[in-house]
């Protein structure tokens, strides 16, 4: 790895820590669920918004922008925090997250703040919308790319596989899905509920080029995301192995923190761990 890249990864790691501090604070104020899901996807979002994607915070409608669809819409606090940090809107708006008269819903909602591309929340919708965006870009000879972040539990939805088949049939190499594979879903371990393995082989069988990565190794995430499409004329999928609640010791790999939100004392500990 070149010095520059190492430096970039280091910068992103520190940004991710700041994002995680925002996330736990937002959940502490709002007492909203899904803090663990947001913490698990934070590194991926930072890598995308600060290193990989072409975005334009001053012009959200820029036709040449790359698009990010958070199909696992319940991790919206992470997306809002990253967008604010990237300059899409003032940071003070983050206090609007999941509170009375708030404008930032617990599930990402189109244009609730600049930069949110689609409304999600019900799982299994994002990849189809992403395929439509990717198809339009191809049709319009627009080089912009579409990144769709899915959760592992979400891949139990049949519509994900409808979209997967469609994307490879239409050779959408401008469509990249990233799976936040944190191994926990709403009411149990993914492998105990409806297991996904052999997960990579499933995607490969559906015509996607697959790579796996440690979803918290910033340098590796950036490197892999920068190398898409992995193969010309094929959609790319990155299976990112993550830990739910990553960064806060008592939230890590815990089903309870899919639902719980930190109280004042827990927030203090969390912020200390993320210092």
């Amino acid at each position: 790895m070149t010095k520059l890249k190492a430096c970039l990864a280091g910068k992103c790691l520190s940004l991710a820590k700041q994002i995680r501090r925002e996330i736990v604070s937002m959940h502490a104020v709002s007492r909203n669920s899904h803090v663990g899901s947001s913490l698990s996807v934070a590194d991926i979002l930072v890598a995308l918004y600060f290193c990989v994607m072409k975005t334009n915070a001053n012009n959200c409608g820029d036709k040449k922008r790359d698009r990010l669809l958070l199909s696992k819409g319940h991790a919206s606090s992470a997306l809002y925090a990253v967008l604010a940090k990237r300059g899409f809107f003032p940071k003070k708006l983050l206090s609007d997250y999941c509170v009375d008269r708030g404008k930032l819903p617990g599930h990402a909602t189109i244009n609730c703040v600049p930069g949110v591309e689609v409304s999600t929340g019900s799982l299994g919708h994002g990849l189809s919308i992403g395929a439509g965006l990717a198809l339009a870009a191809k049709h319009d000879k627009n080089k912009s790319r579409v990144f769709v972040i899915l959760s592992d539990g979400e891949c139990q939805e049949g519509s994900v596989w409808e979209a997967a088949m469609f994307a490879s049939q239409h050779k959408l190499d401008n469509l990249i899905s990233v799976i936040d594979y944190n191994k926990l879903q709403g009411f149990g371990k993914t492998k105990d509920v409806v297991g996904l393995e052999p997960f990579g082989k499933k995607w490969a069988a559906f015509g996607w080029q697959v790579k796996e990565v440690d979803g918290h190794d910033m340098a590796k995430i950036i490197k892999i995301l920068e190398s898409v499409p992995f193969v010309v004329k094929k959609p790319s999928v990155i299976i990112a192995h993550t830990v739910k609640g990553k960064g806060v010791s008592f939230m890590e790999d815990s089903l309870a923190w899919h639902y719980k939100s930190p109280g004042p004392d827990e927030l203090k500990i969390a912020l200390r761990e993320l210092a």
Binding site: V118, I129, A131, G132
Partner: peptide, 26 residues
């Protein structure tokens, strides 16, 4: 031909793809 797509027997995906196309101004 470039504006017609037989989406196959997959209506949920068809509506999602339509939404993506419409978000792009179609």
């Amino acid at each position: 031909p470039d504006r017609f797509i037989n989406m196959g027997v997959a209506e949920a995906n068809m509506i999602g793809v339509a939404a993506g196309l419409a978000l792009s101004g179609k």
